[in-house]
Design a binder for these strands. Structure first.
Lengths: 342, 342
DNA sequence: CAATCGCTTGGTAGCGCTGTCAATATCGGT
DNA sequence: ACCGATATTGACAGCGCTACCAAGCGATTG
């Protein structure tokens, strides 16, 4: 027959309970809901746990309680600075909580995302944070069926699965173009890389703004599916100049491209903004200290991550946020690179 | 008495075994070591699992087997691009394995690191990847006592806890200075931010190279505990110029500082490299496409993460790497910003 | 003073899986 | 055809914790 597998030295809840002179279940309660204990027992369990250096076995807890204290986070990229900021917000919010994070990288593929989602949900996470609003139909179905708080981040849109926090990429891009128009620029080019759904919506915003101003021209648009980089910014800018040598400004879907465009201008001895204005997107730290300083659209990435995590926690603790959809907005940072045309 | 808590619809291993016509333990073996089954049963269990959409319960597995398939990763920062690359390598290597990742952020504090380490180890991780070689004495003790593969990453040094992969920051910095000296520069400034142990060793390398060349001068060194940024690079460079207006080159401990220094030069209309040469560290992507292109010390961050994860996996699978300490080296990328003095 | 209420506490069994060893099937060699 | 060795398979109990219900207890109420 099977023999006992008792590990001798290990501190289990039973040991703590024994030392504290209470039943295991009471000790268990101490760790999950201390307020349910009388003051005396609470103190006894606390000191017993400390004395023995007790650490709960999460696997046993998860098995017995049929739930975990893990919040799943699905993001499309680990290298993109934008997500690093979001992640930092999430980690900061969850650091002081009982919850931990399970991170997965979808690599901008909604099929990969669906696979990871199923993997996550099978382990009964306490909550879920997922990027964007473009999930597969199956992914949506799975998420709607599951009973845990879910926050979609990075953008806002109609019909949230559960909760949502972000901003309108369409409006943000449109505002950036409006700024350029207001500064007197007319032939405004568009540089786009990767072309994921959010970048696509920035392109839509650009198109809307240009069309409204009766300045739209497809020749002004240069896009590629290649992942973004500073180098690529230079290449795309060169492509744009070849297609439309008469541009007086360029809107880049992110700051890396904008920086690349700036360097390309320097290489060609084109003055910024005198000959070409440049506006980026995201307002990464370096935009404010380049020469010239670069205009950009500031987005609240850290807050987005932080609030998303907090929304999950609040829901788990029964204090569901009043507003399930939060628009964090954006602001156009007007700097030297898009100074008024003289 | 307590009542049954059987969840009706749920697919457990027992269901799969029943459908396949084998015992639960055989089905269990299929998921852990398929080769141990006969061809027929293997196929039967496989199709049964597929038909039922069975997903193993990781908590039950962890509880029963007394171990997890989680590899803990401790890094000091989420925003630093350097760690993003390392992480990408780790995730890529582990994506195709059975192991998952538990990530924690030490925020450059070894006390925080020790706390997180205890938290991790209490959950019996399959392996551990930890940044650097400067752990607290208690952390070291705890790690030496535990029986799981541990890889220290980012640098190499004496007395590894278990395994190690990285490069010598001292040598790398020394090589960067040697390059500048060879190009004819003499008054080489040093810009350092954050000053974590690895940056400190880069400073040591700088000092050694300058001392050997009989060019060392403390006035050439500007450091701060403030976290790095492009803006800070500009500020520190300005400080350096105030202290030592006669510098002809500057070595920055990372590329953000180098970029900031470059912008500050442009603002001051100082020609790079004619008036000041600039060399950075890490060789981030943008260094090759700035104007002028910026010299840097290339480090193999992605490979570092990837190999670290692979070393853990190999050890877990009984194929312990032949070399427990791997020096990935570095290379000095010589670009326009440190062209030979004419 | 009995009935009722709310707060604490405990007993029991089970969460879903795997470690251990025994039992059985299979196979090559002589 | 027999033997021992090897490859497969199974039975059982238990991993450490918590859900569920019940019971104890003092306080409150009419």
């Amino acid at each position: 027959m099977a023999r006992k597998r008792i590990t001798p030295g290990k501190i289990r809840l039973a040991e703590v309970a024994k030392l504290a002179g209470v039943s295991p279940i009471t000790a268990s309660r101490f760790f999950r809901n201390p307020d349910a204990l009388s003051t005396g027992k609470r103190a006894r369990v606390e000191s017993a746990a400390k004395e023995l250096g007790y650490v709960p076995n999460l696997a046993a807890r998860a098995l017995a309680s049929q739930r975990t204290e893990v919040i799943g986070v699905l993001i499309p990229s680990l290298t993109n600075n934008v997500f690093a900021d979001v992640l930092r917000g999430i980690y900061d919010a969850l650091d002081v909580s009982r919850y931990s994070i399970q991170l997965a990288n979808t690599r901008y593929s909604i099929l990969q995302e669906e696979r990871l989602l199923r993997l996550f949900l099978a382990q009964k996470p306490a909550g879920l944070i997922i990027t964007g609003i473009n999930q597969t139909a199956d992914s949506r179905r799975v998420m709607e069926a599951v009973d845990c708080p879910i926050v979609q981040i990075m953008e806002v849109g109609p019909s949230p699965i559960d909760m949502m926090i972000g901003f309108s990429h369409f409006d943000a891009a449109k505002a950036a173009i409006a700024h350029l128009l207001a500064q007197g620029y007319r032939r405004i080019g568009f540089l786009g890389a990767r072309m994921d759904p959010r970048v696509q919506r920035r392109l839509d915003g650009y198109r809307a703004a240009m069309t409204e101003a009766a300045l739209f021209d497809p020749q002004l648009i240069v896009t590629t599916a290649i992942p973004t980089s500073v180098t690529l910014g230079g290449t795309l800018f060169a492509d744009l100049l070849a297609k439309a040598p008469d541009i007086d400004a360029v809107f880049c879907v992110n700051d890396d491209l904008a920086l690349g465009a700036l360097f390309e201008c320097k290489r060609r001895h084109m003055a910024v903004p005198e000959q070409v204005a440049i506006v980026g997107f995201n307002d990464l730290e370096f935009m404010a200290s380049s020469e010239p300083t670069l205009s950009s659209v500031r987005t609240n990435r850290y807050e987005m991550g932080r609030n998303a995590a907090m929304m999950v926690i609040e829901t788990l603790e029964g204090r569901r946020p009043a507003k399930p959809v939060v628009d964090l907005g954006f602001s156009v940072m007007e700097r030297q690179s898009s100074a008024r045309r003289s």
